[in-house]
């Protein structure tokens, strides 16, 4: 493999990893607060169409990203209202959100089919972003760097700030957090909205960066991979970064095996693409099994994950 091919491969992997990194990071915060939102795929699709539509109307992909974040957060808050105010089942509501998001994005997308928008420009001078070697560091969309900054911010927030401590406490033992005097529902709304915004940006990455155009169901199940990624990373943001790029590698191998002699490399016919498509989930199961062999403290799973918060009064 020549160095140029290697660089191209790295750029591809980083690119396809970014949506699951963004959405996974959001979901990690949500789950740390004790809420399981299975609607990531739906929120990503809503973000994808909202971002695309905003960009078509305003002409600015930056405004598009903000629109995607807002739409994702709004969809998430709908979920939040159902599970927090009405105490509906989180799993069922999350699945419903995915179905809703898929349908709604298709409906809105009807009038945006075939439209093309201007992609993001690079934030670096062409000398860096177009350089055949340096582009491995500088040749990405601004959203890729945004995702990396968010990994640092989320890690720092969860680990070193009082807000992060309260969020973890709410996810670990909601009744105790309530009895100390923290607003469990308030913290969870905030986390859910953040998760939705991140999923929205992750979705818009498809419609504004990867293609850039709108196609129905264009996130192609990556929301589910993001969910698996959170578990794979055992609810730790730095591991999520490593895991996202690892899953990216697996997704790239899937594309590679599917054919076309990606990047001019020969196809390995022995391993079908379906194998690689299944790998992220298989790896997640393996990680889950490994976690359960070790003690619970090591698993880092929030103790209240997915449980409704019910006080006696």
């Amino acid at each position: 493999m020549s160095i140029e091919v290697l660089i191209l491969t790295i750029i591809t992997i980083v690119g396809i990893s970014t949506p699951i990194l963004l959405a996974g990071l959001g979901e990690l915060v949500v789950e740390k607060a004790g809420v399981l939102n299975l609607g990531v795929e739906g929120m990503m699709l809503i973000g994808a169409i909202a971002g695309f539509a905003t960009t078509v109307i305003t002409g600015s992909p930056w405004l598009g990203m903000i629109g995607a974040a807002a739409a994702g957060a709004l969809a998430a808050l709908l979920f939040g209202f159902l599970v927090l105010a009405l105490n509906s089942n989180q799993v069922a509501t999350g699945l419903a959100l995915t179905i809703f998001g898929t349908g709604l994005s298709s409906l809105i997308g009807l009038s945006f089919q075939g439209r093309i928008v201007a992609p993001f420009g690079s934030i670096f001078p062409p000398a860096l972003s177009r350089d055949p070697f340096l582009k491995v560091l500088f040749g990405y969309s601004p959203i890729v760097y945004f995702a990396l900054i968010m990994v640092v911010l989320v890690t720092w927030f969860l680990k070193s700030t009082r807000g992060g401590l309260i969020l973890r406490a709410v996810g670990e033992n909601d009744l105790s957090a309530h009895s100390i005097g923290y607003s469990v529902v308030g913290v969870r709304y905030a986390a859910i909205a953040f998760g939705g915004a991140m999923a929205g940006i992750g979705g818009a990455y498809f419609s504004l960066v990867i293609t850039p155009m709108w196609a129905e169901r264009m996130t192609a199940g990556r929301g589910w991979i993001a969910l698996a990624l959170v578990v794979f990373a055992s609810w730790r943001a730095p591991r999520l970064l490593v895991g996202a790029y690892f899953f990216g590698l697996l997704m790239w191998l899937e594309l590679y095996a599917k054919g076309g002699g990606l990047n001019g490399l020969p196809i390995i016919p022995a391993i079908p693409s379906q194998f690689w498509a299944a790998m992220p989930y298989l790896m997640t199961v393996v990680v889950l099994a490994l976690i359960s062999v070790r003690d619970r403290a090591g698993s880092n799973a929030p103790a209240c994950l997915g449980k409704p918060f019910l006080t006696s009064n």
């Binding site: 009082r162 973890r168 009744l175 105790s176």
Partner: peptide, 21 residues
């Protein structure tokens, strides 16, 4: 409290910090 309002996965220090206003 009778049933301790403690957070199992957090440290002693973090638990105490949570109770401080």
């Amino acid at each position: 409290f009778q049933h301790f309002s403690l957070f199992e996965a957090l440290t002693v220090l973090e638990n105490i910090a949570l109770g401080m206003d």
